[in-house]
């Protein structure tokens, strides 16, 4: 069971490339939302991590984070999440709303949900365009809570017992400010095998 869904280095490269295309899509979508405010997004790294490594990446199990979750259905099924450390979430909301916030009110939560939605669906669009597969995202769900609580709830909801999770690290920069975020990609039962087969030209039917 362990590692059955662990991508090969070549597959990780593909995911990174898709991440870059998705980031490009996301950046243009976000720029229009930001009224010309400069927000850039890069995908520096893709990694295959164990659950404890994943929570460490976002500051540990107890660290407060903002998490946006989207279920994926259509020709493939899976789950995607976009997690940001709480400080980054504040910086992002502040830079979008153009004011300082200490707590997330309804407006702040809407902004986070929408940014997560844009980031995740941009990535999914890149996947769909490259594979020709139909991919349907669910409505986004937002939680602001302990990283471990959010992350384990998503994994439990998806009934994921795999030991490895593919994580696409992303980074935004807005007017010199660095904002961190991570896209988590969790394949469903059939995994993302189908993507890889199509993308690597090994799909024989």
């Amino acid at each position: 069971m362990a590692g059955s869904n662990k991508p090969t280095p070549m597959e990780l490269d593909l995911l990174r490339e898709l991440g870059n295309i998705g980031a490009g899509n996301a950046t243009s979508a976000l720029s229009s939302m930001l009224n010309d405010r400069k927000l850039e997004m890069v995908v520096p790294e893709v990694a295959c991590l164990t659950l404890p490594e994943t929570t460490d990446l976002i500051g540990g199990s107890e660290a407060p984070v903002a998490g946006i979750y989207i279920a994926v259905s259509g020709d493939v099924d899976g789950h995607m999440a976009f997690l940001m450390p709480i400080e980054s979430a504040h910086q992002l909301v502040d830079s979008i709303l153009g004011q300082e916030t200490s707590e997330f009110d309804d407006m702040g939560c809407s902004v986070l949900e929408e940014v997560g939605n844009i980031v995740i669906t941009s990535y999914l669009n890149a996947l769909a365009e490259m594979t020709g597969l139909m991919i349907i995202p669910s409505v986004p769900g937002l939680a602001i809570d302990m990283a471990g609580a959010i992350w384990s709830s998503i994994l439990a909801g998806a009934a994921i017992l795999d030991e490895y999770i593919t994580v696409i690290k992303t980074a935004f920069s807005s007017e010199g400010k660095q904002i961190a975020g991570h896209i988590m990609l969790i394949p469903g039962e059939d995994g993302f095998e189908r993507f890889f087969k199509i993308l690597l030209g090994t799909d024989n039917g």
Binding site: Y69, S138, G141, L142, I150, S153, I154
Partner: peptide, 19 residues
């Protein structure tokens, strides 16, 4: 056993209650 995504309803993510 919480449901962190109440907006998504009682469906897939509310395994908290079952737990």
């Amino acid at each position: 056993g919480a449901n962190l995504f109440p907006r998504l309803g009682e469906s897939t993510l509310n395994v908290g209650k079952q737990n």
